[in-house]
Design a protein around this nucleic acid. Structure first.
Length: 473
DNA sequence: TGAAATGTTGGGGCG
DNA sequence: ACGCCCCAACATTTC
């Protein structure tokens, strides 16, 4: 008896281990068609950003290599998901499609439509959870409503405990390889004209194997000091797993399991896991409040009067605000597709409070420039900083970019790396070059207004203006 | 996972 | 020795 092949539709689960949909597919004994579809219409207006396209290219290449080593091949197709799935059903006689759930509103809409259409045709569709410890609808408060506060949410999660649906079985998969596939390079996911991603490849190695290596390295050498070191952008104190997590090269289940296996619970382990918890909370919010990327979670912010100056936005984007810690962050982002979390909070506070520019603008910029851009995390965290989100920072919590720099980058390693024109300035003025004497500036080779900008706004004045504006709410 | 303003305390300099 | 003031250090309140 010939078995029809089964489609394993990869989306944000680009790995082969601890993959519930793949396990289920293996268990059927049917030949598997590993498929990835580049569908650029479905996610409008949140079409994948440029930095993520770079990551996707390398992640797909890596996944294909891993599949080839097991006798398989990743089938690449471009176009409307529905049309391509239909084509393959016709080409192969496939009767079933397996996938891992996505949680973005546009993904849910797409998948719901596909389910309806295909189930009517008698096709078997099975969806699995491969990217969240807790389904966003699973965690509820006593009234049966979604949580709006992180602490309570995470407490409930920890009591409930995650389920581990599958571990890797010893079954070896059969792959169906006689399908034509696009050439990955023809998708032009990587830069074609200027190579803006030059700095990316020095820092990042997309793919499942390097995701695991990174987790191992983190657990052996940095986890113990995570609670303190995580706030210092000048040293590598965080896991830097975010882009791997976003693309599903590693799952939060694997991280959870690994941590509980290798380390006893202590403040650093709890602190790291609670960051995974924030990711869960963001998905919980996005699922239950799908307008999160577009509109303020707190309605009273709908009428907030944001400024609208393209010039300030552009100076912020390009790292020319005149505040060294802010500029360092924005340049790290541009050059590597990533920014340290502490600095994300500082630059976001600067945009929304000091410049009073809409958080949506910051969100958009992060969306195109971050390799770890994630709709849920991006939306929830921008709203958190702006003060209009769930469990948000209160409006009067305004980061002082000078103090933050002095506190978390005391030796100036971070600023000197990303704002090299200030590197000869002494620590005492590195975070506030405008206060240095002209002799001091001279000696460091700094000419304010020429080699490095004057501060775009005065901190005290900007703080007062923001307090005034927010107080009107 | 704030910062600034305001309040309190206690040691030491000084007449 | 004593009272007074200054101010650093810390605590509390406010935005």
């Amino acid at each position: 008896m010939t078995l029809f092949p089964l489609i394993l539709w990869f989306r944000q689960d680009l790995r082969l281990h601890h993959h519930p949909a793949l396990e289920a597919a293996k268990a059927t004994g049917q030949p598997i068609i590993p498929l990835y579809i580049l569908d650029e219409g479905a996610s409008d207006p949140w079409k994948m950003g440029e930095a993520q396209r770079w990551w996707l290219h390398h992640s797909l290449a890596s996944l294909n290599k891993d599949l080839e080593s097991q006798g398989g091949k990743l089938i690449l197709r471009r176009g409307s998901s529905a049309q391509i799935l239909k084509n393959i059903l016709q080409e192969t006689g496939t009767q079933s499609i397996y996938w891992s759930r996505c949680y973005e509103p546009f993904s849910i809409a797409r998948d719901t439509g596909l389910k309806k259409e295909f189930i009517e045709q008698g096709i078997t569709l099975k969806s699995f959870n491969s990217s969240l410890l807790f389904e966003p609808w699973e965690i509820q408060n006593q009234q049966g409503h979604p949580y709006k506060v992180f602490t309570q949410f995470w407490k409930k999660c920890l009591i409930q405990g995650p389920r581990f649906p599958t571990f890797d079985s010893t079954l070896s998969p059969q792959f169906y390889t006689s399908l034509k596939s696009d050439d990955l390079t023809s998708w032009e996911l990587t830069p074609t004209h200027t190579n803006w991603a030059h700095g990316f490849s020095k820092v990042w190695h997309p793919g499942e194997a390097s995701a695991h290596k990174k987790l191992e390295d983190f657990c052996t050498s940095r986890l113990a000091t995570y609670k303190e070191a995580r706030n210092q952008p000048g040293c590598i104190g965080t896991s830097r797993l975010s882009p791997h997590l976003h693309f599903g090269e590693i799952s939060p289940h694997q991280i959870w399991h690994h941590l509980h296996q290798k380390s006893s619970s202590n403040a650093s382990v709890e602190s790291f896991l609670s960051e995974i918890g924030w990711r869960e909370f963001c998905y919980h919010l996005l699922y239950n409040f799908p307008s999160l990327p577009e509109r303020p979670f707190q309605e009273k912010f709908t009428t907030f009067e944001w400024e609208n100056t393209d010039e300030a936005l552009s100076l912020w984007q390009t790292g020319k605000t005149g505040y060294p810690i802010v500029d360092a962050g924005m340049r790290e982002l541009w050059q590597t597709g990533w920014m340290h979390n502490r600095v994300r909070m500082i630059v976001a506070s600067f945009l929304t409070k000091h410049l009073l520019l809409p958080w949506q603008e910051g969100q958009k910029w992060f969306w195109t420039t971050l390799v770890d851009a994630d709709l849920a995390n991006n939306a929830a965290n921008w709203q958190w900083v702006a003060g209009c989100g769930a469990d948000a920072a209160p409006y009067f919590r305004i980061f002082n970019p000078i103090l933050q720099g002095e506190k978390f980058d005391p030796q100036g390693d971070y600023v000197r790396q990303w704002v090299p024109e200030l590197k000869n300035l002494s620590n005492s003025f590195l975070h506030k070059p405008w206060e240095a004497s002209s002799a001091e500036l001279n000696q460091a080779g700094v000419v304010l207004g020429k080699t490095y900008p004057f501060p775009l706004v005065n901190h005290e004045q900007a703080r007062k203006r923001a307090l005034e504006r927010y107080r009107h709410l």
